[in-house]
Structures are given as structure tokens and as C-alpha cells.
């Protein structure tokens, strides 16, 4: 019996979310298998990358054009096939847009329930996950023979990407009849890390007052190699596009450092970021509810404080 991790990649490199999923898999104390399904130019290179992850036993590689865009219609039947091959008792994927798209479909094909957004593995059948946007934590026990889990990457440290020496094995999936056709993707070609995967997030709220002023947020984020986020109020006011929204109805983030700038901290925003390790609030308003979750509170005009902070960080790096 073993675990099967669905590796995430961009068809050339593994993504860091895979390392968090492997950490979760290792906690179950069983053999760890990784499935790489994609359309790889250099299957050898990405397979070796996966095989080098510490603690991985076997890498299954399905290199076929039908897996290029990770459509659930193609990957779910393949996962089912691999589950049978390695007799996996646990199938694990990071709880990303892709993982959430694929794993429930796989669970249905296996006739089992799925458990989303696992934050903690208590035993091989008992898991902790957030409900009500993190306003409560539910401990659940699965009675299914196969557990299908998506894991919150921020809750599992990335394991070492070297030191392993897994076997590599090619696997052929069956040709699936695919009824969806991938047309295009408009992803921000940004040098900044992706919001839900970033170690540092700097978010701006209505206090920024304009779209132009978000430059202050961007400069601070760049200095910290972080991602840029926003409150719903800032999105509704049209300062930034809606894919930056952090909150119950936007993205849920839990970085090492979350800096909330000019954000009052509506419940709906707090639900999206309160699991961050360290929270900083920069806000003139001393009464703002964000202060209830913040570790460090700077009550100062953001237009003065943010550029100062950016500069101070830059200077301290220079030393």
C-alpha cells in the first residue's frame, strides 16, 4: 500500500506545490509515488527532478499530448489507473486550481468521497480542514478505502528537492475522449510569485485611494520578493483587477508574512488571510479591526510609511 501524489508542473519544471504535497504524503509513513502527467519536451529532466525529491520511492511518467493542459477528463482516469497500479490508499494533490479541478473527479471515478484543503494529517484516516472560510476547523475521519485529499500548501512545509533516488517508470494512459478544448490562457506574465504560493504578500485596501497609488504596494512587494494582493473594497473601487482579491470570496492565502496596507479588515478579508504566520497592519485608523489579527501594527499614514519601509528594507539588505 502506498500514497500517490499528483505532481504539479508547467510541462518543463516541477512547481513548489509538489514539494508540499510530498511532505503531506510522507507523514502517512507509506511508500510515496509521484505521477507526472504532461506533455514534456524533456521528460527525462523533469522525471529526474521528481526522482531527486527526498523520500520519494517511485516516479510514474505519463508523457502524452492529451495531458498538456491537465484537463480533468484526461488526468482523472489516469490517476485511477495509477491508483490501481501502485495500490494507493491515499491520493494527494496540492489544493490549487488544478488540484481542486482534478481530484474530486478522480474520487467520483473511484466511488469515494474527497477531502478538500487538508491542513493537518492526524492519522491515516483522520484529517483537519477549515470550514466556513476558516471560521471553524473540522476534524474528519474517512471510512472510504481510498482517501482522496487536496492539501493546503501553506500548511505543509516544502520537503527537500534533493537527496532522493526514486525509480522512474513510464506509464501509458488510455486515450480519453476529451470534450473540452483548451484555447488560451491569460496569466499575468509577472516576475512576482503567484498570490497563493508566495511567502510574502503585500495587500492594499481602499486606503490606497487610487489605482496609481498601488505602485507603492508593488514596490514594497518587489523589495520582499512577494506577491501583491488587495481587499475586496479596493477591487470594487476598481484600483486593481479582481484576481488579486484576498478574502472569503477571493483567494485564501497564508504566507509567512502578510502586510495589510490601508485595509480595515472586514470579516470577509480576514477569512482570506488570518492563517498567515506574521501579519502586519499599516493603517492610520487605530480602530480598524485588522489590528485584532495583526502581530505588528503601525498606526501611520501609509503614503509616508510604505515608501519609508521599502527604502528601509532595501538599505538593510545593502548592509
Amino acid at each position: 500500500y502506498s500514497t500517490l501524489v499528483l505532481g504539479e508542473h508547467d510541462n518543463s519544471q516541477l512547481l513548489p506545490s509538489t514539494l508540499s504535497a510530498v511532505t503531506a504524503a510522507k507523514q502517512l509513513g507509506k511508500e510515496v509515488n509521484i505521477l507526472l502527467a504532461g506533455s514534456f519536451k524533456d521528460a527525462g529532466a523533469i522525471s529526474k527532478q521528481a526522482a531527486a525529491i527526498a523520500g520519494v520511492n517511485r516516479v510514474l511518467v505519463a508523457n502524452n499530448a492529451q495531458y498538456e493542459h491537465a484537463t480533468p477528463e484526461s488526468v482523472s482516469p489516469l490517476l485511477k489507473k495509477c491508483q490501481d497500479k501502485v495500490k494507493a490508499t491515499h491520493i494527494i494533490a496540492p489544493s490549487t486550481a488544478s488540484g481542486k479541478n482534478i481530484l474530486p473527479r478522480t474520487a467520483a471515478l473511484l466511488d469515494v468521497s474527497a477531502i478538500s484543503d487538508v491542513m493537518k494529517i492526524q492519522s491515516e484516516d483522520t484529517f483537519v480542514r477549515p470550514i466556513y472560510a476558516g471560521n471553524a476547523l473540522s476534524t474528519v475521519k474517512s471510512n472510504d478505502p481510498i482517501k482522496v485529499l487536496t492539501i493546503r500548501t501553506t500548511a505543509f512545509d516544502k520537503c527537500a528537492d534533493n537527496g532522493g533516488s526514486a525509480e522512474i517508470e513510464d506509464i501509458d494512459g488510455d486515450a480519453s475522449e476529451i470534450h473540452t478544448k483548451w484555447i488560451s490562457e491569460d496569466t499575468k506574465k509577472s516576475a512576482r510569485p503567484e498570490l497563493t504560493a508566495a511567502n510574502v504578500v503585500v495587500s492594499g485596501g481602499r486606503g490606497l485611494k487610487s489605482s496609481e497609488n498601488f505602485k507603492l504596494i508593488e514596490e514594497l512587494a518587489d523589495e520582499l520578493n512577494g506577491a501583491v494582493g488587495a481587499s475586496r473594497a479596493a477591487v470594487d473601487a476598481g484600483y486593481v483587477s479582481n484576481d488579486l482579491q484576498v478574502g472569503q470570496t477571493g483567494k485564501i492565502v497564508a504566507p509567512q508574512l502578510y502586510i495589510a496596507v490601508g485595509i480595515s479588515g472586514a470579516i470577509q478579508h480576514l477569512a482570506g488571510m488570518k492563517d498567515s504566520k506574521v501579519i502586519v497592519s499599516i493603517n492610520k485608523d487605530t480602530e480598524a479591526p485588522i489590528a485584532q489579527v495583526a502581530d505588528l501594527i503601525l498606526t501611520k499614514d501609509l503614503f509616508e510609511a510604505v515608501p519609508q519601509l521599502t527604502k528601509a528594507i532595501k538599505d538593510s539588505r545593502g548592509k
Binding site: A97, W182, I183, E185, D186, T187, E194, A197, D243
Partner: peptide, 12 residues
């Protein structure tokens, strides 16, 4: 909506 942007699909 996907992580980091948008994806366009056609479906039967």
C-alpha cells in the same frame, strides 16, 4: 478562473 489568471476553453 485559475491561479494567476484566466483560462479559455471550448466545450461540447
Amino acid at each position: 478562473e485559475i491561479d494567476g489568471g484566466l483560462q479559455n476553453l471550448e466545450s461540447s
